[in-house]
Simulated scan of single mutants.
Amino acid sequence: MTRSRNRPSLSALTALGLLALAGTACAPIVATRGNMADPERLAEIKPGASRQEDVAGLLGTPSHVGTFDQSVWYYIGQKTEKTAFFQPEVVERRVVVVQFDPQGVVSNLKTLDASQGQEVDMVDRATPTSGRELGFLEQLIGNVGRFGSKTGGMTGPGAPTGGSRIP
Rank of each mutant, 00 (worst) to 15 (best):
S50T: 00
L58I: 10
R33C: 02
A126L: 14
R5D: 13
M1G: 13
G145D: 00
L109C: 05
A49Q: 01
V95W: 02
V97L: 12
G163Y: 12
A126G: 12
S9I: 01
V120P: 03
N143H: 14
L134E: 13
Q139K: 09
E89P: 11
E53M: 03
P28E: 04
I29W: 12
G163D: 14
T14F: 14
V120M: 11
R125M: 09
S149H: 00
L42C: 04
Q99I: 05
G17F: 14
L16V: 10
G104N: 04
E138S: 15
P160G: 01
D38T: 07
M1R: 08
S4L: 12
G158C: 09
T14Y: 13
A56F: 13
S115R: 03
D69H: 14
G145T: 00
E44C: 08
V90S: 04
H64G: 03
P39W: 00
E40H: 11
F147T: 05
E44M: 12
W73M: 01
V95M: 06
N6F: 13
M154R: 11
R146T: 02
S164N: 08
S164T: 12
M122Q: 14
V106G: 00
T61Q: 12
E44T: 07
L112T: 05
R5S: 14
G163H: 11
V72E: 13
F147R: 03
A126F: 13
G153V: 04
P157G: 10
G142T: 07
V30Y: 05
G163C: 09
V96I: 11
G17K: 07
Q103L: 05
T155A: 08
V91G: 15
P157C: 09
K150F: 02
G104I: 00
G153K: 01
D38F: 05
P88K: 02
A84Q: 06
K150M: 02
R93E: 07
T2C: 00
D124A: 13
V91I: 15
P88L: 01
T83E: 11
D54A: 05
S4F: 12
Q70F: 15
F136K: 12
L13Y: 06
A22T: 10
Q103Y: 07
F100N: 09
A114L: 08
P28M: 05
Q87G: 06
V97E: 15
N6A: 13
D124G: 13
R94Y: 03
G162E: 10
P47A: 00
S71F: 10
G158P: 11
D101R: 00
R165D: 15
T151S: 15
S4R: 13
A12V: 06
V72N: 13
S4C: 08
R5Q: 14
L16N: 05
D113C: 02
P167G: 11
L13T: 06
D101A: 02
T151I: 11
T61Y: 08
R3L: 08
Q139S: 06
S71T: 12
V55A: 00
V144E: 05
